[in-house]
Each structure stands twice: as C-alpha cells, then as structure tokens.
Computed example of a mutant assay.
Amino acid sequence: MVLTETKPAAPRMTWMDLVRGGAILLVVFWHAASVPDQLLDGAEPGYYVRKLNAALGPFRIPTLLVLSGLLVERSLAKGTWRYVTGKVRHVAWPYAVWLTIIFATMGWLSSLTQVKVWLSGGILWYMVALLFCYAAAMLRPRWMPWLLFAALPLAVLWLVEPGIPILDRYLWYGAFFFFGAAVGPHLATIQTRMPVWAAALLALITLGGGYIVAKRLLVSQTPEYLPVSLAGILFVLWLAPRIPRWPLTRLLEWYGRNSIVMYVGHAFASYATVRVLDVTGTENMPYVIPLMMITTFGVPTLLVLARRRIEWLFVFPELRRSRPAARAPRHVSVTTP
C-alpha cells in the first residue's frame, strides 16, 4: 500500500470576500441610480444619492481590480492552460451570456454583430477590462516588477493621450489591477505592520479625497485623482482583517463569494426594469429610483440563491476527459496433462 501525503487546503481569506462584497454592492447602488438617469427622462436620483455615488467613485471598481490583481500570481502559477481556460470559463463566458441576455431584453440584438460593442462591454465593461488585464499579465516579462508594469498604462494614458474612450478606460483601470499584483507580496506587511498613524493618514486622505471628488474638484483618470483611490484601497486592505465577523459582515462575505452573479445579475435587472418602465409609460413616476433599488439588489440576490441550479449561466461547464476503463485481466486457463 502506498501512502500519499496531501497538503491541507489554504484557509479562505474571508476579509477579501468582505471587501469584494462591499465593493460589488456599491457598484449595484451606483447603477440603480445612474441607469435610469441615463436611459429615462426625468428619473434623476436625489441630491445626496448623487453626491454619495460621486464620492465613492474612486474606490468601487478600482478596489475590485486590485483584489483580482492580488491573486494573479497564484493564477499564473497554475500554468498557461489552466490560467487561460479558467478566465474563459469564469469571465469571458458569463460576459458573453449576459451581454446577449441584456441586449435581447432591450431589443438591441442586432448591435452584437459589431466588434466595438463587445470591446466596450456596455454596462458589463468591467468584465472586458478584467479580460484585458489577465491577457496583459501573461505578456509581462518576468524581469519587470509589477509596479513598473502598473505604471506603463498610466504613462500611455497621460503622456501619449490616446483620446479613445474605451482604450483610456482600460489603461486607467488596468493600472489598478497591476498595482494589486505589486501589492501582493507586501500584503502581510500592510495588514500586520502598518502603524495606526499611517492608517489614520490614509483614512483622512480617503475621506478628504472623496469629498473633493463629490464637489467635482477632481476629475477621474488624472494624476491628482490617483492618490485618492490608492489611499482608500490601502486603508481598506489594512482595515478589513480587523473587522469582526458579525452577521452583517458574513452577509457581505456571501455577496463577495458570489460577486460575479451579483455583477451580471444587477446589470440585467437594471436594464430589464428600465425596459418595463419604458414600455408601460411609467418612467416618470416618483417611485422609479426606489423600484430600481429593489430590483437591482433583489434580482441578483435571488440568482445567487438559485445559483446551483443555473450555474452554467455564470461558469462554463468544465469539460473533463473520461478516463479509459481499466482493462480486465486476462484469464489464463491452466490445463493439466
């Protein structure tokens, strides 16, 4: 008998689920207010909702990208085949499925024949940004530090100034992904050895920066905007492991573990709600924003609860090669003379 030693599975980083859950809910909150404002006449969110969403702008998507970047080295270590197929199954597939569903809901299916639509992603652009980041990560020379690699898209954005909205967006947000990869080796130091005064300074920059952004004194994708986002993200990385696991935080962790479902599900819910309001002629009613809040949070939550039955909508089924059946031993007949 041969005994094989198996390594215990690494404990799940619940703090990362917590941060991802909080960030994805902020994205849901943003779209619940902004989608009807963009697509419906007169459906404007209140003053404080607009200001709050503006103040949170530097932190929502950048935080999600930094979290993904923190794990990219681990993903690359699995080998090129597993790395590529994993991103196709978990990112490209749900993106294609749900972009098709959303465009079908809105009556825009003919637009899917245009390459530009797939590259821009519409409301699902974050998933396209992720795919570009994962592809670029494979091309990084091993001798190049991640921090320098993170500076490259910003250099192109600010020095070359492409002026192409889609490209500008991916250059800007891609920098956060690679910043996350650069932070990865130093994460334990940030979370355990950062002095309280340094964390307090980061918190002060975060609050002050958010307030300035809400006042529209800072514009996204500019050098002055970057420190605000980075300060907020570093502060959250320091704070998250220190938050007790209360029922509320466990709920956020649950949303974080199902962030892909929340992301595509809320996008569908927001557009489907707008479509219903438009068809029924009720787009100017005073309850539009509250209704949007209910549907954009409620529908994806129901999808998470039903996820096991509809998993193929969010992850492409893994194709496993069937092992050949073991050959039966030959029966040797022994005859006696």
Rank of each mutant, 00 (worst) to 15 (best):
V2Q: 10
E5N: 12
P8Y: 04
P11A: 02
R12C: 01
R12F: 05
M13E: 15
L18Q: 01
A33W: 09
R50P: 01
A54L: 11
A77V: 01
K78W: 01
W81Y: 10
R82Q: 10
V84N: 00
G86L: 05
H90K: 14
P94W: 11
Y95V: 05
V97G: 09
W98T: 10
T100K: 02
I102Q: 09
L112I: 02
V115S: 09
V117E: 11
S120K: 07
A129M: 06
A137S: 14
W143P: 00
M144K: 00
L147H: 00
F149C: 00
A150R: 01
L152H: 00
G163E: 03
I166T: 13
L167A: 14
D168M: 05
Y173V: 02
G174M: 03
A175T: 03
F179D: 00
F179W: 06
W197H: 12
L202N: 08
L202C: 04
G210P: 03
G210Q: 03
G210D: 04
G210N: 04
Y211H: 15
L217P: 02
V219Q: 15
S220Y: 10
T222Y: 14
L226P: 07
L226Y: 13
V228Q: 10
V236A: 12
W238I: 06
A240Y: 06
L251Y: 13
I260Y: 03
Y263I: 00
G265C: 01
L277M: 12
G281W: 08
E283P: 00
Y287R: 03
Y287P: 02
L291E: 04
I294T: 15
P300S: 09
L302E: 04
I310Y: 11
E311D: 14
V315K: 10
F316H: 13
L319W: 15
R320G: 10
S322D: 11
P324W: 09
A325L: 14
A325D: 13
S333D: 11
